[in-house]
Design a protein around this nucleic acid. Sequence first.
DNA 1: AGCACGCCGACT
DNA 2: GTCGGCGTGCTC
Length: 744
Amino acid sequence: MGKDSSDLFGALFDAPPLARPPLVSVVSVLVPLPVPEAYSYAVPDGMAVMPGSVVQVPLGPRQVIGVVWDGEPDPRLDPKKLRPITQVFDCPPLTDEMRSFIDWVAGYTLSPPGLVARMAVRAPAALEPEPMVEALRYRGGEPERMTPARARVMDLVRDEVPFTRSGLSHAAGVSISVIDGLVKQGLFETVFLPPPPVVARPDPDYTAPRIEGPQKQAASEIVEAMQGGGFSASLIDGVTGSGKTEVYFEAIAQALRQGRQVLILLPEIALTASFLERFQDRFGAKPAEWHSDLAPRMREKVWRGVVTGEVRVVAGARSALFLPFEELGLIIVDEEHDSAYKQEDRVFYNARDMAVVRARIGQFPVVLVSATPSVESQVNGQSGRYHLVHLPTRFGEAAMPDLHLIDMRRHPPERGGFLSPVMLRAVKKTIEKGQQALLFLNRRGYAPLTLCRVCGHRFQCPQCSSWLVEHRFKGQIQCHQCGYAEKTPEACPECGTFDHLVACGPGVERIAEEVEKHFPEARTIVMSSDLLGGVKRMRLELEAIAKGEADIVIGTQLVAKGHNFPLMTLVGIIDADLGLANGDPRAAERTFQLLSQVTGRAGRTGLKSHGLLQTYQPQHPVMQAIVSGDASAFYEREIGEREKALLPPFGRLASIIVSADTRLDAETHARALRAAAPKVSGITVLGPAEAPLALVRGRHRFRLLVHGRRNSDMQGYLRSMLANGPKVRGTVHVQLDVDPQSFL
DNA sequence: AGCACGCCGACT
DNA sequence: GTCGGCGTGCTC
């Protein structure tokens, strides 16, 4: 069977040679629906489409955007009754490369291809070319009465270079009405100019690379590898401040010299003005941005620039991976370990992994970058799948902070407090020198749990049963799970006793209270996401801290990323063990990554700096990895643990992985599965984006991914699967012997 | 994904 | 008597 749709019609119309088959051509179109296949549409006379064409088609009562795909229309459909394509958008069709990528992602993530395709054509109004802009060109003659303002305009326009109305008024420093006056006198003709580019073109040789030693070596290794062309995957693994960005900037320069487009993926939070400025300093222009809260107008312009090839570099969040670049030649995935690369709704994917796939399909390099690589990437680095580039030292004047553990069993805090005397002494010394201390605790609010001393009542969320967290600044108790909040009650709702509520454990607000008690003179700031005043206030506070307008900063995760604080020479981790025992198989990895990031905030400007970690488990591999500065033993152990966790003994079936729209659904399905088959052990429940990764070493012989939202259906499917073996109808997909990394 | 239809509980 | 909750079905 060929791919040409004429085969199908051969089959349909061959038998009785009626009159002539009607001259109607039919194509497959991926529509934005969760259905497994493309739909078929008629192509009206005179309309030209090809695979990849972006079209508008009728779907039920509405019009939707679709993409012409290859593949044969369903033979059961009557071609005469097919609805026609409404219009073809005037934009370049998706490339073969892009279509292969979409098909691959849909297959791998078990997602409907139409929903994957939709991610590539999500800027609806951008599908038509941008209108030309009106401009004025001098056509000769003189103004009736010359005035100083008119003279300034005339000086500019005499060489007949066209200006837009507002451009001319700006350039001449006159008001619009002066221009209009001259237009009325017939001095100008209207011409149309192509719209201005969204961003200027970056120049690979705008400035010389500012790197030396190991960084230069690493950069030339990568650039050399790029010379030959073709696919390669590299992992740059370097401590905070080791010049990773400078190294991958050289890879970008090389791709630009080769005339290719570049995509830089960043976790949403890292897409900051400071990153864009750094890029501009090196390349003379900013990259185009792509993220969820880009203004619609800008989104269209960038999309358009990307397909036409006018935009050369995009810095974007995970969704940028699905932009239909004209000639993409390099992808950088910065902070590759960051969980923000996972999308866990609609189409479930990890942009980091899909970036590798896109590069493989397009035959160009991909560079993953992290100070604390994910365990998966570490495995791929060790096995040789990824080319490892290790940057062990800091770059320039920055020195690594001196890191120590505080064994809390030997140096306990005073009664009612949470800060060890060792920590307090270090803070004191730091602020005496006029430097800054950061106390990190990844817990918002005053206390994670509140209870009544009289009856033992614990404040629990009425909606989701997690503890309610007291926020003293706001006078509220809040649920950090679902957002439920109420005013902090004065009396116990259970026994009615007043003033007997007791806070258990620390949050940042409570640490602030303790700090103020010990250092009443110090300027103390609490930084957490519930800072009153929103993003604007937050930015101001961060700037103030950078300028040295605070002595002690107490913060949650929020302070871990991005910002540079030149005077920050002490980082104190208040509860380094927090997060190690939450049942997540990635708990240790996450803790290691977070703590590395936070301690990396110190010492980036040449001042001698320190990091102190309060812990009850000084022997824990995470603590050892952090203070020794050598993570290799930690990674070895993690890889082993991960394999044990993900490969439970399961008889002939290696394991069943249950994954659904949400982790919660997956848990529900797993419960149903366990109830239906009490003897089955070894059911692994993962979030959808994680399920394929679980097969990191490809040893599973069987996997089951459950997709669907109807819980009752799911339970039925699961039961019937157990009763009848893996022959299940409906929305349950079963794949046998899949090696998820077979693309490499 | 949207959106229509249809069936049961609590209200202007 | 209706308004509206969500469970179900359909889209070439």
